[in-house]
Simulated scan of single mutants.
Amino acid sequence: MPFWDNARFACIVLVVLGHAIQRLIYDSDVAYAFYLAFYAFHMPAFAIISGYFSKSDPPSRRQMVRLITDVLLPYLVFEALWWFTKWLVEGQVDPNLTKPSWTLWFLLALGIFRLVLPYLALLRWPLLWSVLISVGVGYLPNVDSTFSLSRTLGFLPFFVLGWWLREHDIVERLGLLRHRPWWAYAGALALFAIDGWLAWTGIETWREMELRYWFFYDDAYVDLLSHSVWWAGAMRLATLAIGLVLSAAFFVLIPRRQTPWTRLGQYTMYVYLLHSFVLYPFRESGVLRDLEPTWIWLPTVAILSVAVTVLLSTRPVRWLTGPLVEPRARWLFQDPALLPGRRNDPTGSRRPKP
């Protein structure tokens, strides 16, 4: 199904774009509104895709090996690379495996999602429980970015939703990938038009309340609001609902057929793990601050973000960085035969045999 790889590629483009324009949003209302418009849904959509291709059965020995090779080892490798990079650039480093560096939180979240899912699947109404967990964790200031736990539990409903859709065969039974009526496209475009309009017209309010941090699912309510209020969970419910609706609209607009970027969508983890090193010099040097006019620089950065995504997905880059992104580590296992014959992206992409 090319659809899922197309969706992965679109998601990773938005990830790179979001990180690329982050410095622009401090000086430009247009950039900030654009940022909010897609930050509301791009990681929820990514989590839904990952959940769709996850299994709730007790993990087999081979699946446990894959959790180590696909998630844990790349996390350790790239944390070490970040420590080295910060030591070179900043002259100091504070090694701490419990605090994921920049983008590595999602890799850790994928591992935790997989560990938690078999237990949630044993319960009645697992989707409801995941929502209660997401809303409830915001009331607990002691659940923070350690092991990315606050963010992971915040995004948990989207991952569980993806699994639930596959578990109950919803997509196939409703024929959601076989046929889309014209009104579905019209409705999706209308939703994004409303999304953009609200992001722009309310920009002063969104800046004042620092809305973007609500879409990170990373902070406790008391930190986001500067004080504790009982109704703060309603804000989390609202962000979950917005993420769900916009993710649905996003999936409606994704092509179902083979496209030039379909194959690139099978290697999103390469882009996810590598793009931050490409953007780091620009992010830290300040060259993306005070760029005017916005109508030139915002499209320029957007085009460059797509170019970076494509470049990091190409075969030469994968060949060069493969041992880091997808370490084999045969020496680590008692039974190397448990290692998979061919690798798949941790988000669930099934790659063709070489």
Rank of each mutant, 00 (worst) to 15 (best):
P2N: 12
F3E: 08
F3N: 04
F3M: 12
N6L: 13
A7T: 05
R8C: 05
I12F: 02
L14F: 10
V15C: 10
L17H: 03
H19W: 04
A20Q: 01
I21N: 01
D27F: 12
V30T: 14
Y32D: 03
L36N: 02
Y39S: 03
F41S: 02
M43W: 00
A47S: 11
S50D: 00
F53C: 08
S54R: 01
P58S: 08
S60M: 10
S60D: 11
R62E: 13
T69I: 13
D70F: 02
V71E: 01
F84S: 12
W87V: 06
L88M: 13
V89K: 04
G91E: 12
N96V: 06
L97C: 06
T98Y: 09
L104K: 01
L110V: 11
G111N: 05
I112Q: 05
L115F: 11
L117S: 01
L122M: 15
L123W: 14
L127P: 02
W129M: 11
S130E: 05
N142R: 14
D144S: 11
L153P: 00
L156G: 01
G162K: 00
W164K: 04
V171M: 12
G175M: 10
L177F: 07
L177T: 09
R180D: 06
R180V: 02
P181F: 13
W183M: 09
G187Y: 00
A188I: 03
T205Y: 14
R207G: 06
M209I: 15
L211Y: 07
F215R: 04
Y217V: 11
D218H: 12
D219Q: 13
S226M: 14
W230H: 10
L237A: 12
A238D: 09
A238L: 15
T239E: 07
L240V: 07
L240M: 12
L240I: 13
I242E: 05
I242N: 03
L244S: 10
L244K: 06
L246A: 07
A248L: 12
F250H: 04
V252G: 05
R257C: 09
T259G: 07
P260M: 11
P260E: 11
G265C: 06
Q266N: 07
Q266I: 00
M269S: 07
H275R: 06
R283S: 13
S285Q: 08
S285G: 10
G286P: 09
D290C: 14
I296K: 05
W297R: 05
W297T: 04
L298I: 12
V301N: 05
V301T: 08
I303R: 08
S305A: 10
S305K: 02
L311E: 01
L311P: 00
S313F: 01
R315C: 08
V317R: 00
R318Y: 01
P323Y: 09
E326A: 10
P327E: 10
R328N: 08
A329D: 06
A329W: 04
L332S: 14
F333R: 03
Q334D: 15
Q334C: 13
P336R: 08
A337V: 09
L339Y: 04
L339T: 07
L339R: 03
R343V: 00
D345H: 07
R350A: 07
R350P: 00
P352W: 01
